[in-house]
Amino acid sequence: MRREVIFLLSLWKANLLAAMEYRAAFISQVLGMMLNNAVYFVFWMIFFDRFKEVRGWGLTDMLLLFGVVAAGFGIGVALFGNVLGLAEVIARGGLDYYLSLPRPVLLHTLASRSVASGFGDFVYGVLSFVAAGQFSADTVTRFILGTLLAATVFISFLILVNSLAFWIGNANMIAQQATNAIITFSLYPITLFDGTAKLLLLTLIPAAFVGAIPAELVRGFSWQSFGQLFAAAIFFFSLAVFVFHRGLRRYESGSAIQVQL
């Protein structure tokens, strides 16, 4: 376990150093993503300026929601950026390289790439949380906890949909649509959805565990929301690891072992 942690830290360090080689591009992506998120949030500012609240959700709730979603997504793709292209890696035989090395395949594959804009998302998320004005030792702890659990559910979901490539080959489009769906749904107040829709957001597209439930946890601690989120993170993570390794048994390629630069 200790060896894997050291290995992971070395990968992250190498990714960061690689990003810093193109410092201007890195900074432009970080700042660009922060501005991008801020412009998107203007929609909710205009909306709540006119309608004040929607089923109990106001602007502060949206700031917390955006905070936790952006920070969770950001930290996820900054540290495990290859998850966004995992289906492509599987389909073109790119796992050969990772299989040939004595390291955990899934961990190595995911952490071997970092998405620079993810750092921008993460910083934006923290700023959005600060702007919500609920800044205390308690809420900061809950924000960190909520963000980490949301990131776990998000990354696990992406591993699951991208792993479809083991069975259907080209799963790029499905994986992209699923990624869009979970991000889109997680950025809306959960109270808009009821019945079947809510069930869908807790199971098939677990957007509620990436947005609304962690945001609820940050707003005020309750064992119910913490328990739900923790259980979901464990469940989706275990399922993702299980499905990936089942898929790995079916993996075949034309031997694409190559040097990674």
């Binding site: 660009g32 991008n36 412009v39």
Partner: peptide, 26 residues
Amino acid sequence: EEIRAFEWIYAKFILILGGVLIPLDF
């Protein structure tokens, strides 16, 4: 060399100032 940031921001301008998420009438 990197134009992605400009793409994102233009896309968001369209979403908000182009009235894709909410009609300009509101």
